[in-house]
Computed example of a mutant assay.
Amino acid sequence: MASDKAERLLNLYIMLLAQTRFVSKQDIRRAHYADYPDTERGDEAFEKAFERDKDDLRELGVVIEVGSLDAFFDDEPGYRISTDTSALPEIRFEADEAAVLGIAARAWEQATLARRTTEAMRKLTAQGVEVDSARLDLVPPSLRAEEPAFDAFWDATQKRRVVTFDYKRPGEQPRKRRLQPWGVVRSSGRWYVVGHDVDRDAERVFRLSRVQGRVSGVGKAGAYDVPPGTDVSAIAANLAPRTPDVEATVLVRQRAGVGLRRRASRVEEDVAGPDEESGWDRLVITGPGSDLAGEVLTYGASVVVEAPEELRADVLARLQAILEQEGVTR
């Protein structure tokens, strides 16, 4: 699946970035590829997957260094990613690949998404490979999904397990629903789960903020298959109302906000910012209001909204909701 590929690329990037020296191909295979079924079929399958993954990362602008494992012998090459030359640019994948990468980047510190990479790090350390977690500052965690149900639905999509939950529409009482979740996706500033409603025998989309109480797994993992060609992002986008476009003025730290800079209609460099930890630029961007609010939040403290006031208030309200969920008072 495309989502497996996207997850594997991100984890390979993080694993190679954390190395202080060159790592052999076989060490990488044992530490990273053993958990992916399509590379367990033998040497040829692994070689093809590894070469393809390296090419895909290089197409994204990642510099993979190749060097000798031994200063006196150069017969076996090793691999690593240098922190001096590597920083992920704007990533362009298919819809489901982009969703996986976006979620993983936003929630790196959550164990549900970091498990495979953490296990790979442990295996490399056991093999005597030096790992420096400080080198992962290039891919820091950002804001977590604010809905409490996010982790449960994400886990169910990975395990292909049916879930039950109470769902409350505006003006109605909560109702019990049974769902085969296909994917979790963000659309128009909201998180949704897309899947097959078991009781209604139909495709459905549920907004996570309307889920009441606990999400419970039912039955065994691997209980169903996602229909071929399913695009959960497109399904959610079709059902989520699109807000009108707004022109926004934002302050962005220098050397940050690559995605915003690519589509800015105007850039004013070296302006006064809210702090002096770095330089700041002022950007003018246009897009749906709710989408812009969600996008700004992914950059954390590196982006500040100046105008319009409605967008600024939306961002502040979402930040306040996250603080309240975490039990932080101001």
Rank of each mutant, 00 (worst) to 15 (best):
Q127P: 15
L323W: 08
Q127V: 10
I81Q: 01
G171L: 15
A149F: 00
R266C: 11
R169E: 05
D4K: 06
D56S: 15
A221V: 04
S209H: 08
A49T: 09
T20R: 13
A126I: 08
A18H: 03
K5H: 11
T329I: 15
L9F: 02
L283R: 01
L124C: 09
T85G: 08
R52Q: 10
D27V: 02
Q173I: 12
D43E: 07
P228K: 13
A34F: 13
E7S: 15
V131A: 11
R92S: 14
W182L: 05
D245Y: 14
E44M: 11
P140H: 12
E277G: 14
T230M: 09
V296F: 12
R116Y: 06
R330Q: 11
A98Y: 12
L9S: 00
L316Y: 05
R161M: 14
A120D: 04
R204I: 08
Y224L: 01
R8A: 02
L143C: 08
L113Y: 07
A264C: 10
R186D: 01
G222M: 04
Q127G: 15
T118M: 14
R169M: 13
Q158N: 15
L12I: 02
L69T: 00
A248T: 03
G222W: 05
V163R: 00
R161E: 07
P288T: 07
L143G: 06
V23T: 10
A107P: 01
R106M: 15
T39A: 09
M15Y: 06
K48V: 12
G183N: 04
E172M: 15
S68N: 07
R29I: 01
A236L: 03
M121E: 07
D201S: 14
D201T: 10
L138C: 11
R178Y: 14
